[in-house]
Nucleic acid binder design. Structure first.
Lengths: 209, 209
DNA sequence: ACCTGAACACCGTTCAAGT
DNA sequence: ACCTGAACACCGTTCAAGT
């Protein structure tokens, strides 16, 4: 069973009227901006509220505390990422294995690179204890999608789908993150990406028929 | 040029007498304990000082602020890790490629697993902006050691050592970290580790003579 | 050379009062 | 149903006084 997020991490109330939906959206956007400008440590509730154009009290109607705000932002980001990966997996259903891996790497890579500043800001914001729940939920969702995709490959037979799946997903996700943290040059990043593909393909050759 | 840590991150003064060396050591140890017990967000300067058996004022004689304290802890950890990796690289100089990769994976894996609680606590503590400098310095050091090791392999010729080196180090480090964050079972971890080795070996086959 | 801890400023959070 | 912002408690940081 996946750990559910602690109650203190959940939004205090759900926006009902249109006005409040706009407010919550503004708070999210302001949080990203402040995170990019000041970093996690200098992010104050006041600065977020100010940038969002609302009072602190309003913020606290939707988020029980500062952590919950950042938590919700991460949840949003991971959800968007999961949606994209699921889409890729659906598209690649029944394709040859090598193509699947390339599509998967492409999706991860693009998701991290497109808005690199936001990715970086979020990586930095993950100071909190209780994002374990987030990570697990995300991993479970993505693992399911990719496992199904790999099972559908016409040119391969897996004795142990979950194992091969775990290996691929962990290597790809971990490598992309590490590459990102290193702040590689465009050329180095391109080379690395190609080498990553080579490794995954070499690994998959064990299962091809 | 590697980014140097911002001055506010550096220790305020260096312990000279024996008494103060003990004090600083106690502060480091207390920081780990509090980090493990309360997490980064509930870590207060008072709680660290109390656990270390000193006053807050004393803490501020050696660390200019709270961030610097956690920063120094990370620096220490990364230094210890780099020392171990460098040792492995020296030991493996001139060995066959496959053995090198296995030794490298073993070293990373062991370093992260031995004191898993501390590793986790430190991962969580990395909320700060300025650990980029730390990461870069660490990466540079480790990259140099592994590149030299790979160059010394008797059974391989690399057209582009830095590139192959980057691919291997990024994949290994990233994968170990991701595996760690997922909190895998012992069996799953063992399988993954073996698969990681398989991938690296398959990649290296491109360079063997 | 090193340590103490009361004092200050600032930030997270609340809540009575508003539309 | 939603918003405001002054008020309170607590934490990071300092500094005068100590050994």
């Amino acid at each position: 069973m996946p750990p559910s997020p602690p109650t203190t991490m959940q939004p205090r109330k759900t926006p009902i009227q249109n006005r409040s939906r706009v407010t919550v959206e503004a708070i999210y956007e302001a949080t990203i901006q402040v995170l990019l400008r000041d970093g996690m440590n200098d992010l104050t509730t006041t600065s977020v509220a100010e940038r969002a154009g609302v009072s602190v009290g309003t913020m606290y109607q939707y988020f029980p505390n500062k952590q919950a705000l950042v938590y919700a932002l991460n949840a949003r980001y991971l959800d968007a990422l999961a949606v994209r990966i699921e889409a890729t997996c659906r598209e690649q259903s029944g394709a040859p294995l090598g193509q699947m891996v390339e599509a998967l790497i492409e999706t991860y890579w693009a998701a991290k690179t497109e808005r690199a500043d936001v990715t970086r800001a979020l990586y930095r914001s993950v100071a909190e204890l209780n994002n374990d729940a987030l990570i697990h939920a995300f991993a479970e969702r993505v693992d399911r999608a990719t496992a199904e995709m790999f099972s559908s490959a016409r040119d391969a037979v897996f004795a142990d789908v979950p194992r091969a799946n775990l290996a691929l997903v962990t290597v790809i996700y971990g490598t992309v993150r590490n590459a990102f943290e290193r702040g590689l040059s465009t050329q180095a990043a391109a080379d690395l990406r190609q080498d990553l593909t080579t490794m995954c393909r070499a690994y998959l050759a064990n299962f091809s028929v």
